[in-house]
């Protein structure tokens, strides 16, 4: 038995394998209690293998050059949201101020909830990652990670840490919350790296 595809037209080439178009919806998936973070209390810290540990407040990040991502996002639970946008600052801008040491190869991004995720440094540099506080021109809502979340849109969305508090640069890979609970180390949607060993 097979399913009739919803529409007669070609499958949207922006959809990675196994994904479907969630249309106008933006599902919420959360593992923990949603924290209420007052922007005036929020800060973002880059530490570890950097020349200078740096911390930015809400006002600090707003003074940096704004950067907008326009494109698609892909959740491991198989929905994708096509043609969306997020506004904030490029992670390159923040990393440049901290100065990664040559020994740094990976990062752990973390939230004040205790949620963590690991990323190779090369996957968050060169215009691939942002720290964002706007979604489609409006303030990012709390269930979606507001006031500020990480955005790494070329990987499954669990890498885009909600309520992000900082990044630690390491000289080795350190699997995070989901990566130690059965999910893939990297999470590339185009090769369907959903679960451990994919």
């Amino acid at each position: 038995m097979s399913l009739f595809s919803r529409t007669a037209r070609e499958r949207d080439p922006r959809l990675p394998p196994g994904q479907y178009d969630a249309g106008d919806t933006f599902p919420v998936l959360t593992a923990e209690v949603v924290p209420r973070i007052d922007p005036s209390q929020w800060s973002f810290r880059i530490d570890g293998l950097v020349a200078t540990t740096r911390t930015w407040t809400w006002d600090d990040v707003h003074r940096l050059p704004a950067s907008v991502y326009e494109g698609d996002i892909h959740c491991v639970t198989t929905w994708s949201k096509l043609g969306t946008s997020f506004g904030g600052v490029s992670l390159d801008t923040l990393l440049a101020e901290a100065g990664p040491l040559p020994t740094a190869t990976h990062v752990v991004a973390w939230s004040s909830t205790g949620y963590t995720t690991n990323l190779p440094l090369e996957h968050v540099t060169g215009g691939k990652a942002w720290v964002v506080w706007e979604h489609e021109g409006k303030p990012l809502t709390t269930p979606h990670g507001g006031p500020v979340r990480l955005l790494v849109p070329h990987l499954y969305f669990w890498k885009s840490v909600k309520w992000v508090g900082g990044l630690r640069l390491l000289d080795h890979d350190e699997p995070g919350f989901w990566e130690t609970r059965g999910y893939h180390e990297l999470g590339d949607p185009w090769t369907e790296q959903r679960y451990d060993g994919d």
């Binding site: 923990e32 752990v108 205790g114 508090g165 919350f177 990566e179 609970r181 180390e185 451990d196 060993g197």
Partner: peptide
């Protein structure tokens, strides 16, 4: 760094 829940399982080399 903050952590959430009991420490998880480190995936085996090559994955399972």
């Amino acid at each position: 760094l903050p952590t959430l829940g009991p420490v998880g399982r480190r995936p085996p080399p090559g994955g399972a």
